Amino acid sequence: MLVGPDGRGHRCTRGAGARSRGGRPWSREQNGRCPRHSGGEPPPRPPAGERCTAWPVCARSRFGGGGGAVCLLDALSQESGPPAAVTVFEPSDRLWRGRPYQRDADCILVNLPSRAMSVRAGDTRHFDRWLADRRRQTGALREVSPFDVAAFPPRAVFGDYLESVAQQSVARLDERGGKVRLVRERSVRAAPAAGGAVLTTERGTRHEADRVVLCIGAGVPDDGFGLDGPEPGFVPDPYPVARTLAGIDPQHTVAVLGTGLTAVDVALALRAGGHQGPVFLLSRHGVLPAVRQQPVVHTLRHFTCFSQEAPAFRPVRNGSWERSREAAELPSCLS
């Protein structure tokens, strides 16, 4: 994310446009200083008992328009003094969703329970409430049991959530004077400048910024084995699976490199698409992802006796046998 000035000189107001004492701009930056002030006297604070309603002189911009950008937009829109302007650089068609949560098959689920997927800091149930509202709106009112897979909604649904939060955040910022500008270009260079930075896009456009925040995500998988080439048969990035796996012959053998969550997504997508050929998950360690589910409180009410491996007898002198001490100390139901 990049932060850039919008060219406006906001001043402290008392109700309807009155200026602060001395008529100088008021900034809510830390220690009362704006990043544009380099060692000079900080702007005066409003008189005691009077509330400053002006926005900071400085604005913000960002690299990337995915989930990380949505988290930041949501937080900025709820600040008492949001930035005057925010510029978001996102060249792809997956605005606000990012690569992981683009529109895809419903069998591709999020990796964590919904209670752990909130984008709002300090509000862990934000996504859960959004899901509940969505179920009410669509008529899906059934209760979700502790073992229900609906606790892990499809990634595309989480992408819908990100889009919804982003749109609401942009609207809140706009209502309070903070403008969000979207640049559909890739920023390829950032250089320090007086009071901030200058960013250059792939088309040569320059953007000034007071602050730069990187929200670039994890990127695409690396072709560490050099398998990509002119010959068909290799899929370097399986997402979206609805498109990348659609051309695989259902009778062909499929080898998946790795046994992590992406491999599980591929296997689920192939199964949902009716694939009938063998599917191999190849890994040097052979460990599948841990099961992630909601914990269930359970009180033990019944105890079933079971046999425990313990030598019932052991050999003694003269070729005779006697009951072992371990077996003798076990309860009768365990021996």
Rank of each mutant, 00 (worst) to 15 (best):
Q78V: 08
S80R: 12
S80N: 07
G81M: 09
G81E: 11
P83H: 14
T87E: 13
V88C: 08
V88N: 06
V88S: 07
E90N: 05
P91Y: 10
S92M: 12
S92K: 08
D93K: 14
D93Q: 13
R94Y: 03
L95R: 01
R97Y: 05
R97F: 03
R97E: 02
R97T: 01
G98K: 01
R99C: 15
P100H: 03
R103S: 06
D104K: 04
A105N: 13
D106T: 01
C107S: 05
V110E: 05
L112Y: 06
P113F: 11
S114C: 10
S114Q: 11
R115D: 08
R115H: 12
R115A: 11
A116C: 15
V119N: 04
V119D: 06
R120P: 02
A121T: 06
G122I: 00
D123P: 06
D123G: 10
T124L: 15
T124Y: 15
F127L: 03
W130G: 00
L131W: 06
A132K: 00
D133W: 05
R134N: 12
R135Y: 14
R135K: 14
R135C: 12
R136C: 04
Q137I: 12
T138F: 05
T138W: 08
G139K: 01
L141P: 02
E143Y: 13
V144T: 08
F147G: 05
D148L: 11
V149F: 15
A151T: 08
